[in-house]
Design a protein around this nucleic acid. Structure first.
Length: 491
DNA sequence: ATGTTC
């Protein structure tokens, strides 16, 4: 009734936050003070060097997030942040369901549970250098990649439902890995509370032939060499040493997660009036956690998390086959698997009081510190492995969560972060030249689409060393190891 | 990110 009359107001985004001031708190922390209609301030984690990479669109989006009902403490911005769909990529926000808190589909992102897992191969640099072309070709042949590419492992509607509930655990039960893999995966390999019945038939249909596929964009499978160890104790706990050869897999939930976002965003936007939520922009559409729609999205999103975990598990199995084909002594032992597009229910201490919050991490990695009760035994004493994937041709880092990471609801950055849009990168960078440069650097690339080489060029990303330095200086996570790429299979 | 602008 009266609600209907104001419907148009919610459709039009008012020009909020024209004047955004960053107030320095320390070497690597800034605050954007709360101003109406923000409910909380923004906390921005950046050194001076990284602050220059945070454009006004990103900060405005962080302020928009700060207006949402039930947000706790602050809207947070990681050092790798850049603007995304509604909600910054590299954004973290926690909501209290008991305070009217919301679940925001744009705060998770389209590629639900996109993430990285890194394994130690048991090989030496000489093993790889001696068979560089053979290994690259074998990986490229066996790992389906690219837009619209299907895999070799078809699902049935029955097995798909089980996979959406069981995640990597389902994959292991079907022969695609080991219990040890699950012990080194967030959530022990599967997300509780998945509700496949809230995933649309269309989303399910899109994934029927996508299990064990890499996808496109920034997704990759990369062979890396460890060049530096910064924290010997944590490196030992993670089982990494200098000159170890690693395999990193970066991918997500493919068409299924994307379709969940596509399905729920308009449903949330349409019900903003009904829920009495004033949206700063439509792209931030959300629903109260304690609403049918909010619960449906959470159930579907958790199924999407399981989909991504199963996908990375099957890709691991495929990679093991390739390595076994090329080497008699490889073993591909998991370090850890982290997701960086999620919303998870977690207990956090806020002003000395324990609260159960829904923590959105969009392009941000969970970074539980030492002693966190949810951590598996292998890393309990040193903190969670935080895998920070580099862009093509640049180093990756393995960090560890710190006690101080509590200030960001136990979150850290997930990568370098884009500094150039895909469109600009395509216009200014030539994929073929890029490949030649990388080849001279000793990096072998195989790709299904030359356009992604331009889009994913190192120049299109922030300097990962500077980003990681900011994360460390802010106390969110500390450096454990650095690795450089040798072979990269690009989607 | 994405059956690459259903």
């Amino acid at each position: 009734m009266a609600k209907k009359k104001h419907h148009a107001q919610h459709k039009t985004a008012p020009a909020l936050f024209k004047d955004i001031q960053l107030i320095r708190q320390s070497d690597a922390e800034w605050q954007i003070p709360q101003q109406s209609p923000m409910r909380v301030p923004c906390h921005v984690f950046a050194t001076d060097a990284v602050r220059a990479t945070l454009d006004s669109a990103t900060l405005r989006q962080a302020c928009n997030v700060a207006t949402l009902p039930g947000i706790v403490t602050a809207s947070m911005v990681m050092p790798d942040a850049h603007s995304g769909y509604g909600f910054p990529i590299g954004g973290v926000a926690a909501f209290d369901p008991d305070a009217g808190g919301v679940i925001c589909a744009g705060g998770v992102g389209f590629d639900i549970a996109c993430g990285v897992r890194t394994l130690v191969t048991g090989l030496t640099p000489d093993d790889v250098l001696g068979k560089r072309t053979q290994l690259a070709d074998a990986l490229f042949r066996s790992i389906p990649c690219g837009v619209g590419t299907g895999g070799a492992i078809p699902l049935t509607s029955v097995s798909l439902e089980a996979m959406l509930t069981g995640g990597a655990k389902w994959a292991v039960a079907h022969g695609y890995g080991t219990q040890a893999d699950l012990d080194h995966t967030e959530e022990g390999g599967f997300m509780r509370g998945a509700r496949p019945e809230f995933v649309s038939a269309e989303a399910k249909k899109r994934f029927m032939d996508q299990l064990g596929t890499l996808g496109s964009g920034n997704h990759y499978m990369e062979v890396q060499r460890v060049t530096d160890i910064y924290d010997a104790t944590a490196a030992q706990a993670f089982g990494i040493a200098v000159d170890d050869i690693l395999l990193s897999i970066h991918c997500g939930s493919r068409g299924l997660g994307h379709q969940i976002g596509t399905d729920f965003l308009p449903r949330m936007a349409d019900k903003a009036d009904y829920f009495g939520i004033t949206l700063p922009e439509k792209e931030l559409a959300c629903a109260p956690i304690f609403s049918d729609l909010g619960q449906e999205y959470l159930g579907a999103m958790r199924a999407g998390i399981n989909c991504a975990l199963a996908n990375r598990q099957v890709l691991t199995h495929l990679a093991r086959g390739v390595f076994a084909e090329c080497y008699s002594h490889s073993r591909l032992r998991m370090i850890y698997d982290v997701s960086h597009n999620t919303c998870k229910e977690e207990q956090h201490v806020v002003n000395g009081k324990k609260r159960l919050l829904h923590v959105h991490r969009k392009g941000a990695t969970r970074a539980f510190g030492p002693g966190h009760p949810e951590l598996p035994a292998f890393c309990r004493s040193v903190g969670q492995p935080v895998i920070v994937g580099g862009s093509m041709g640049t180093p990756s880092y393995i960090l560890a969560g710190c006690t101080d990471s509590a200030k960001s609801f136990c979150s850290a950055n997930h990568g370098a972060g884009r500094s150039m849009s895909r469109t600009t990168a395509r216009k200014t960078i030539h994929g073929k030249d890029m490949l030649a440069v990388l080849d001279r650097m000793g990096i072998t690339i195989r790709t299904s689409d030359m356009r992604s080489i331009a889009e994913e060029a190192p120049e299109a990303y922030k300097n990962i060393n500077a980003v990681v330095e900011a994360t460390e200086k802010a106390g969110l996570a500390r450096r454990v190891a650095r690795a450089v790429p040798l072979i990269c299979i690009k989607g």
